[in-house]
Simulated assay, not measured.
Amino acid sequence: MSDVLEVLNPATEETVATRYDRPAVRYEATVLVAAINESLWPALSQQALDLVAA
């Protein structure tokens, strides 16, 4: 019976999935940007200090 319902209304699972997938993707992207920022911070701060000292 559930197979019949999925065929008739396949969007039911998609609406539940997209409701939680979008914030999950946004969170993952935020964490990735923060990790890149943390890894680049020493090099960027050293370049800034070199520019100020020059």
Rank of each mutant, 00 (worst) to 15 (best):
S2V: 07
S2A: 08
D3Y: 12
D3N: 10
V4L: 13
L5W: 05
L5E: 11
E6V: 01
V7D: 10
V7K: 15
L8T: 01
L8K: 09
P10W: 09
P10G: 04
P10E: 05
P10S: 05
P10C: 01
P10K: 02
A11V: 08
T12A: 06
E13R: 13
E14W: 14
E14D: 10
E14T: 08
E14Q: 09
T15I: 15
T15P: 00
T15F: 15
T15W: 02
V16R: 07
A17L: 14
R19Y: 05
R19I: 03
R19F: 12
D21T: 07
D21R: 15
R22W: 09
R22D: 10
P23K: 11
V25R: 12
V25C: 03
E28Y: 10
E28I: 07
E28H: 07
E28D: 09
A29P: 00
T30Y: 04
T30D: 07
T30C: 11
L32K: 13
L32H: 12
V33D: 00
V33L: 09
A34C: 10
A34Y: 02
A35W: 00
I36G: 02
I36N: 01
N37A: 11
N37F: 06
E38H: 03
S39V: 10
W41P: 01
W41R: 07
W41E: 03
P42D: 05
A43G: 03
A43I: 07
L44P: 01
L44K: 03
S45L: 06
S45Y: 09
Q46R: 15
Q47V: 09
Q47R: 13
Q47W: 10
A48N: 11
L49Y: 10
L49Q: 11
L49K: 14
D50H: 06
D50W: 08
L51W: 09
V52E: 14
A53S: 15
A54Y: 13
